[in-house]
Simulated assay, not measured.
Amino acid sequence: MTAAPITRLNTEREEADRLNASVRTLQAWRTRGDGPPFLKLGRAVRYDPRKTDEWLATRARRHTADQGEAIQ
């Protein structure tokens, strides 16, 4: 089995900037468990941009009443 290549991991600030959100918003999402996947490396929190992009794809909606069927 071949391991996947390691990609650059983003800090909280870098990921918040990329998502046009605040660091506090990312922290709140982590606390509630409804934000993008993250890694905890000791005390440091890091985000894999590929995993965040996958998470974002699950958030797409067609209208306000849409309860979760992601756009294909």
Rank of each mutant, 00 (worst) to 15 (best):
K40F: 00
T7I: 12
R8C: 04
A57P: 01
R18Y: 09
N20S: 14
D48K: 04
R18K: 10
G33V: 09
T64G: 06
R46C: 02
R50D: 14
K51V: 02
D17M: 07
A3W: 02
T2Y: 13
R18W: 11
A70N: 04
A57F: 03
W29E: 05
I71F: 08
V45N: 06
T2P: 15
A44R: 12
L9D: 00
A21F: 11
A70R: 15
L41M: 10
T25G: 00
E12G: 08
R32I: 00
L41H: 09
Y47A: 11
L39F: 13
R50S: 06
E14N: 08
P37K: 05
G33T: 01
R8I: 10
A65G: 10
D17C: 09
D66P: 01
D48L: 03
R24F: 00
A60E: 13
R8W: 01
V23C: 11
R50P: 01
A3T: 06
T11A: 04
D48R: 14
S22E: 11
R43K: 07
T52Q: 08
R24H: 03
D53E: 15
A16P: 00
T58R: 14
R32G: 01
I71G: 02
Y47D: 04
L26C: 05
K40Q: 12
T11Y: 00
R32W: 05
T31S: 13
W29N: 02
T2A: 11
R50N: 08
K40E: 07
T25Q: 10
T58P: 01
L56A: 10
N10G: 00
P5T: 10
D66A: 09
R32N: 09
Y47W: 09
P5K: 11
E69A: 09
E54V: 13
I71Q: 12
L19I: 05
N10A: 14
A16F: 09
E12Y: 04
A57L: 14
R59S: 01
R46K: 13
R30V: 03
R43H: 10
Q67G: 07
P37I: 06
T7L: 11
P36W: 04
E15C: 15
